[in-house]
Amino acid sequence: MRLLIADDDARAARQLASALEAFGHEPVLTGDGRTALALATRETFGAALFELVLPYVGGVELTQALREQGLDMPIIILSVHGELADRLAGLAAGADDYLVKPVAPVEIDARLQAILRRAARIGDRGVMRAGDIEVNEVKYRAVRAGRALALPKLEFQMLCELVRNKNAIVTRDMFYRKVWRYEAEPATNVVESYIRRLRARLNAAGEHDPIETIRGVGYMLIDQG
């Protein structure tokens, strides 16, 4: 699982990341809350681990900001501060758990798996599939053939539109209205540029390109499942 880890103690973060890699996770590290906020809103992560005290934006404020933007990925706050007020503030902001350091990586992994199991029991809200591609609009996740896709926000939204309208044409105008919220199509080739980026992230070596270009009109995601 792709994990976003925000901790201003670079050495401790690297040690934690190395330990979590042994459980099959793919950690992405940052040392401040402002960068973590930008990464979380641009890219796709399965879960996040935030230190309570961070430069620029603290763990509680970071969690609250992400929840206000509708991001539903599991978030665990880690801190040496174990006071009740700190724990309550983290949970009230939307964190799924609050762990007091020192905490063993095996427990962090176990907590993450427990959160994911609870989320799975809620059901497949927001899940759409086309062939080997699956997107979850609620949890902001995209997967192809079991491989998590690290998609920036606009590319994720474009993929959602393509999957939602699989085997049908998504016009440039539809992209502008649904993704960019434009009322009229601007005189640019921004859609074409973003489709190229989406294809680069969507298609691994040896995989077919499921996005068909309908020249002069738009694009179609072919469901070969």
Rank of each mutant, 00 (worst) to 15 (best):
E192T: 10
I122C: 12
Q113C: 02
A38P: 00
P210M: 05
I115E: 05
R196V: 15
D97G: 11
R199A: 14
E207K: 02
G70T: 08
L151E: 00
G206Q: 03
E107F: 14
G24F: 11
L149F: 01
A145C: 12
L66Q: 10
L149C: 05
I222N: 07
V190L: 14
G218A: 10
P74D: 09
H25S: 08
D72K: 07
K101E: 15
I169L: 07
I214S: 11
R196M: 11
R144Q: 15
Q15H: 04
A65Q: 10
R181N: 09
M158Q: 06
Q224I: 08
V53R: 15
R177Q: 13
A110S: 01
N203E: 11
S193K: 08
R121F: 05
I75R: 03
A130C: 06
A204M: 04
L149G: 01
A85V: 07
A110M: 00
L154T: 13
N136R: 00
R201V: 08
R144C: 06
D132K: 09
N136L: 04
G131F: 05
V135K: 02
D109Y: 03
L37C: 11
A104C: 05
E192D: 15
A17S: 09
K153D: 15
G131V: 08
G146T: 11
R129K: 09
G123I: 08
L88G: 02
H25F: 14
N165L: 12
H208M: 06
V53I: 15
Y140C: 01
L221D: 11
L66M: 13
V163E: 03
D132T: 07
R118A: 13
E183K: 13
A48T: 04
A36K: 00
V57M: 02
R117H: 03
M1L: 13
V217G: 06
R147V: 13
H81A: 12
P102G: 09
R117M: 03
L159H: 04
N136A: 02
L91Q: 05
R118S: 12
L66N: 10
D72N: 14
